[in-house]
Design a protein around this nucleic acid. Sequence first.
DNA 1: GGAATGACCGTGA
DNA 2: CTCACGGCCATTC
Length: 101
Amino acid sequence: MDEARHERIRAAIAAIPEGSVATYGQIATEVGEASARLVGRVLREDGADLPWHRVLRADGSSAPQLVDEQHQRLRAEGVEIRDGRVVLADHRVASGWISER
DNA sequence: GGAATGACCGTGA
DNA sequence: CTCACGGCCATTC
């Protein structure tokens, strides 16, 4: 049942605190039964109701078609962006943020 | 059945 | 720091 994985992936993304961000790979790792590619796919299909703007690539950049709105929304939450890349060092959530309180 | 595509990642030169 | 390669998983042709 891949629905279960979708569910866990969506839950992980929904659990990202405001003002924080996570990478596709980080989410995949946290969820376990997933991969970065799958996370991206899930967001494309069913990410409309999730804080998808808090999900970035490993280097802090984002996909070309998302850059505009992504940066806009993140800045609105107080996330610092430098030279087209989010400052992961300061805003990346700590591993285990899901089950962690 | 195989090849190409995509909201990707880690490693090594 | 940047660029190139192989690996990753699921969908689509």
